[in-house]
């Protein structure tokens, strides 16, 4: 249902052109959950925002195709794109505390998405539309309350009129999910939806997302920097580093038998309760500065423990190592 080909997003800054997303290829089938994993600044969020064509200024999509149900989103007009946003493709954000507009009641914000996509049709078209307005509002209110109930907000009729600051973080994220679900989207983009929440709430939100995936058949792209969460939640995993895909494949392959040194490093740095008194592993070095990154060779070269001299020079494609499993590393050439 979604296919991204050779997507490139650049930011033109004073210090030069930053390639935030540098040639990403992705496919997502209907009803699947794809995990997009990587450190901060690896281009995960930009990839998601590109799908909705909401890359913030001064960034822009310079190359590639984003095929959604066979049609290239990058060729759509602004108004066609607006209709797709929220209706066919919905997005939820990392920090629920800042995602809801603080000056409008939560329920009204859910009702707004029903309204902008005309989910409850007005009885009369055109200038006579206002005649059925009260009735339409009432139906929208009922639908919004139903959505709130569905995502697990208790006393929805009362909470409808609450303001975002009167909700806890977990409740806010539920309300945001209710907004995302309001038009029954085919694809849900989830940008670290649990990062800002504490662990018990995290599990509840993940359960809710899985339920949506199973019941509605909604495909999900789940961005996270937490491999453990991704392993538990996703069907497929794609690991990103410095705007590139370094490894992708079915979850058991990527987690079970990681191929790329970066993926191995990420997996090793997950703390385990069983290993006591051991120093926690960390990948040496820092995420490279995208503005000063050498255009040639492997971007992970500087930090890689298995690097060889050629890594500095070689331009690598994604190499298929087994069925559906790809890796971008010289060792598998």
């Amino acid at each position: 249902m979604l296919e991204i080909r050779n997507l490139k997003v650049v930011f033109e800054t004073d210090r030069g052109v930053v390639k935030a997303v540098n040639g990403i290829d992705l496919t997502l089938e209907r009803g699947k959950i794809l995990g997009l994993v990587g450190e901060s600044g690896s281009g995960k969020s930009m990839t998601l925002l590109s799908i909705l064509r909401l890359v913030p200024y001064p960034g822009k999509i310079v190359e590639g195709e984003i095929l959604f149900e066979g049609e290239d989103l990058l060729k759509k007009s602004a108004s066609q794109m607006r209709e797709i946003r929220g209706k066919d493709i919905a997005m939820i954000f990392q920090d629920p505390m800042t995602t809801l507009n603080p000056v409008f009641p939560v329920g009204e914000q859910i009702r707004e998405s029903l309204r902008v996509h005309n989910i409850i049709k007005p009885e009369k078209e055109g200038i006579l539309g206002f005649l059925g307005e009260r009735d339409r509002r009432k139906k929208e209110y009922e639908k919004a309350v139903e959505l709130m109930e569905k995502v697990g907000i208790s006393y929805p009729e009362k909470r409808y009129f609450s303001y975002p600051h009167q909700f806890s973080g977990g409740m806010q994220q539920r309300a945001i999910i209710a907004i995302a679900l309001s038009c029954n989207p085919k694809l849900l983009l989830a940008d670290e939806p649990t990062t800002a929440l504490d662990v018990t709430i995290q599990a509840q939100i993940l359960d809710l997302l899985r339920q949506i995936n199973e019941v509605n058949g909604t495909s999900i792209i789940f961005v996270t920097h937490d491999l453990a969460v991704a392993a538990e939640f996703c069907d497929e995993i794609a690991v990103m580093y410095a705007g590139q895909m370094v490894e992708k494949g079915p979850v058991d392959k990527v987690i079970g038998e990681p191929k790329h040194p970066y993926t191995k490093g990420l997996l090793k740095s997950i703390p385990k309760i069983t290993r006591k008194k051991e120093k926690l592993y960390a990948i040496p070095g820092n995420v490279p500065d995208l503005a000063s990154l050498s255009p040639k060779g492997c971007p992970f070269y500087e930090r890689c423990e298995e690097a060889v001299e050629e890594c500095k020079e070689v331009e690598l494609p994604l190499i298929e190592v087994s069925d559906g499993e790809f890796v971008r590393c010289i060792k598998y050439l």
């Binding site: 909401l54 913030p56 607006r82 954000f93 920090d95 800042t98 507009n101 998405s113 902008v116 996509h117």
Partner: peptide, 22 residues
């Protein structure tokens, strides 16, 4: 610059309303 403005756009709210309302 706030998230809720980007979120309003991601909901499919027309740009005019994003500015004048949100």
């Amino acid at each position: 610059r706030n998230d809720y403005v980007v979120f309003a756009r991601a909901k499919g709210v027309p740009e005019k309303l994003v500015i004048l309302k949100h």
